[in-house]
């Protein structure tokens, strides 16, 4: 029995070894800081990038989850790191695009304290209604909401996240005062939507996809300027005559003083990696459209989006500092 056990342990460790043998105890690793907890979709993306950077640089690359302050803590960790090219930040859009408008005492300047490296992937939002809402199109929803103002409540995966602001943007565009209910993640909001507990949910298209295809809920519109490849039959807000648009993305940044040649090297590795067909397919399964970009392109995008979201943040009245 003892020998069996010893064999088992050896087997388990042997299975672990090949995947981590490269990890070197004595060499400084490149670390990718991800400002949210392990386990979510973004975290998986960080781990995929780590694998690619490891292949491209032939160095040990680790993912460090640094949570807190809805992402602020992780960004700050990178901002305060040595700009030696050993610290990178993989972040969703919000901490580097809207937080300067949300948090009055934000401890970093997303434009001055960080240097863009590469855009990794983007995705869009969608608005969906549950089984109790008798509408098939977005204009019908607007009419229905005007007739039933008490039903003008929408759920989002979290207060202060972009879907929250996008819902507010929608309410403003159609002239309805929407009450926001923040959930902890899309799953909880979706459960309530399917169960008819809440009429409307705004979140990423991916999170709504499976239940939409199953007919339990209905996606009425998507938020990009062009139709979503995931649900090509659904029109965009713009097509329907509502002038609102919004996409979100994941991108890599580095501390501001990181040398340009290092930044360019990383940018190329990441962009090339996500452009590979099998990687594109892998990301699409996670609901992400692979992008890749030069540092300059990402910088431009960051500024554009910051201008776009500023009015929505203001209109939402979301202000944690009060």
């Amino acid at each position: 029995m003892k020998r069996l056990f010893a064999c088992g342990v050896a087997l388990a460790f042997a299975a672990l070894a090949p995947f981590t043998a490269q990890a070197q105890l004595l060499q400084q690793p490149v670390r990718i800081v991800f400002p949210f907890a392990a386990g979510g979709g973004g975290d998986a993306l960080a781990r995929i990038l780590a694998e690619e950077l490891h292949k491209g640089l032939n160095r040990n690359v680790v993912v460090e989850n640094k949570t807190g302050g809805a992402g602020q803590n992780g960004v700050l960790e990178v901002v305060n790191s040595n700009p030696d090219g050993n610290s990178l930040l993989l972040t969703p859009i919000a901490p580097v695009v809207v937080y300067q408008n949300v948090y009055k005492n934000l401890k970093y300047d997303p434009f001055k304290d960080l240097k863009p490296v590469a855009l990794v992937a983007d995705f869009e939002f969608a608005i969906a209604v549950g089984p109790n809402v008798p509408v098939k199109t977005l204009p019908e929803l607007v009419t229905w909401l005007k007739a039933n103002p008490k039903q003008a409540t929408f759920g989002s995966p979290g207060a202060g996240a972009l879907p929250h602001f996008f819902g507010v943007l929608f309410g403003k565009a159609v002239g309805i005062d929407m009450v926001h209910v923040g959930y902890r993640g899309s799953s909880a909001a979706l459960t309530d939507l399917i169960g008819g507990q809440i009429p409307i949910v705004v979140t990423t298209t991916t999170d709504l996809l499976a239940t939409h295809q199953d007919g339990k809920i209905r996606i009425l519109a998507t938020s990009d300027s062009k139709r979503s490849p995931l649900v090509p039959e659904v029109p965009t807000f713009k097509e329907l005559g509502y002038n609102i648009e919004g996409t979100a993305w994941y991108a890599v940044f580095a501390p501001a003083k990181t040398p340009d040649d290092v930044i360019n090297k990383y940018s190329k590795i990441i962009s090339d990696a996500v452009q590979r067909p099998e990687m594109k397919a892998r990301l699409l399964k996670m609901g992400l459209y692979a992008k890749g970009s030069t540092p300059a392109e990402l910088g431009k995008l960051q500024k554009e989006h910051a201008d776009r979201w500023a009015p929505a943040v203001k209109a939402s009245g979301f202000n944690p500092a009060k």
Partner: peptide, 18 residues
């Protein structure tokens, strides 16, 4: 941090507590 409003509750601006 409060889930609905994002306001810090007894967090004393410590990110670790948010």
């Amino acid at each position: 941090d409060d889930v609905q409003t994002g306001q810090g509750r007894m967090t004393f601006d410590q990110y670790e507590l948010s």
